[in-house]
């Protein structure tokens, strides 16, 4: 029975390595093809820094979008405070 177990061990490890080596080859090939034809999207750029407000004055309002986001934040903070009460 030890002989049988040894055969199963050799066959088993051999098959596992064969299958995973095939997978490794295909993954490597797929990675190269993907790099050529479907490259991963570059990570999103960090938001541009907000210019510092001149001393004593209010922060400059860049554009409408930033205004909107600030309004959203203000609304969220107000809602959170109301919930807290």
């Amino acid at each position: 029975m030890i002989r049988d177990a040894t055969i199963v061990m050799i066959l088993g490890m051999g098959t596992v390595f064969l299958v995973l080596l095939a997978l490794l080859g295909l993954m490597t090939l797929g990675g190269r093809l993907a790099a050529r034809y479907a490259p991963p999207e570059p990570p999103a750029k960090p938001p541009a820094p907000v210019p510092k407000a001149p001393s004593g004055g209010p922060a400059p309002q860049n554009d409408a979008a930033e205004n909107d986001s600030q309004t959203c934040v203000a609304v969220a903070v107000a809602a959170a405070r109301r919930q807290g009460k």
């Binding site: 040894t6 199963v8 061990m9 088993g12 490890m13 390595f17 995973l20 080596l21 490794l24 993954m27």
Partner: peptide
């Protein structure tokens, strides 16, 4: 991808143990 081979090597836990059970 090369770390896939570590997943294969760790299966020695299965087939090495088979010999242990027989022993």
């Amino acid at each position: 991808p090369r770390v896939v081979l570590l997943g294969a090597a760790a299966q020695f836990g299965v087939f090495g143990t088979l010999l242990g059970v027989i022993l």
